[in-house]
Simulated scan of single mutants.
Amino acid sequence: MTKARDIMTGGAQCIGAEETVLDAARKMKDLGVGALPICGTDNKLKGVLTDRDVVVKVLGAGKDPASCPAGDLAQGEAVTIGADDDAEEILRTMTAHKVRRLPVIDGHDLVGMVALADVARSLPDPKVGDLVQALSTD
């Protein structure tokens, strides 16, 4: 069975919780990604910041991205997947939490990110349809 480490994009980089949303946006641009894990000063994962969060929760809300800490956008406990979890578990986790990207951890270390497209390439067609439907409805 395909494992998260087989389909993830490795080398994920965090944005510090104390860094600004503007810093995060620049880092996303430089890395060519649409999401960054948010890490606290204790190196623990606090959440995931997406490009949509930047637009809707910061710019759309009239906040200044240069003064808004990325950590302010971390909500609740971070949803992650283990590096040795299989594609079915990734599917269940994404569906249950209605997320399109998951940080991949090995022990307590961030080792990569797995996105909906990664999972879609590794699952049979009917399961992909189920995942897309689950993530596309409220």
Score class of each variant (00 low, 15 high):
I90C: 05
S136R: 04
M8I: 13
P126N: 09
V33Y: 00
A70H: 04
T20D: 06
V48Q: 00
L116W: 03
D51Q: 09
G40S: 09
D6P: 11
D23A: 10
D6R: 14
G129Q: 06
V128M: 10
D42C: 06
C39S: 11
R92F: 10
A66H: 06
S122T: 09
T93K: 07
V48S: 00
G40D: 09
A4F: 11
G34D: 03
K127W: 12
H97R: 11
V33L: 02
T80V: 15
A24I: 09
L73N: 07
Q133P: 02
L31C: 12
G62F: 07
K127Q: 15
G76F: 05
L102C: 09
L73K: 07
V56P: 06
S122Y: 03
G71Q: 06
T20S: 15
T93H: 02
A115I: 02
V119M: 02
L135M: 11
R5M: 12
E88N: 03
D42A: 11
A24M: 12
A17F: 12
D106E: 14
D106S: 13
V104C: 01
A87Y: 08
V128S: 04
D125F: 11
T50Q: 03
E18Y: 15
K63I: 04
E19G: 11
I7R: 14
G10I: 14
V58W: 01
V58N: 02
T2C: 14
S136N: 08
L36K: 00
L131W: 03
G112D: 01
G71L: 07
V48C: 02
D138Q: 14
L91D: 04
E89P: 02
C68G: 00
I15Y: 10
A83S: 15
A117H: 04
P37G: 02
V55F: 02
T137V: 15
L102T: 08
P69Y: 10
K127M: 14
K46Q: 13
V104G: 01
K29G: 08
D72N: 10
V21M: 10
G107V: 06
D30C: 12
L131S: 03
I38C: 07
K57A: 02
A78D: 05
N43I: 11
D125G: 04
A117G: 09
A115H: 08
I81C: 11
L110Y: 01
D85Y: 07
C68Q: 10
V33N: 01
R101P: 11
D109A: 13
C68T: 12
D84V: 08
C68R: 03
A78L: 09
V132Q: 03
V104K: 00
I105S: 01
I90K: 04
I105K: 01
K57H: 07
G129H: 07
H108V: 14
R92E: 13
P37C: 05
M8E: 07
A78R: 05
D64K: 06
K127H: 12
V119R: 00
L73F: 10
L49E: 00
G76V: 08
G62T: 05
G34L: 03
C68I: 09
H97Q: 08
A12H: 14
G40M: 11
A66R: 07
P65S: 00
V55C: 05
V58H: 01
L59T: 03
P124M: 07
D72G: 04
G60E: 02
K63Q: 07
G47N: 09
D53E: 13
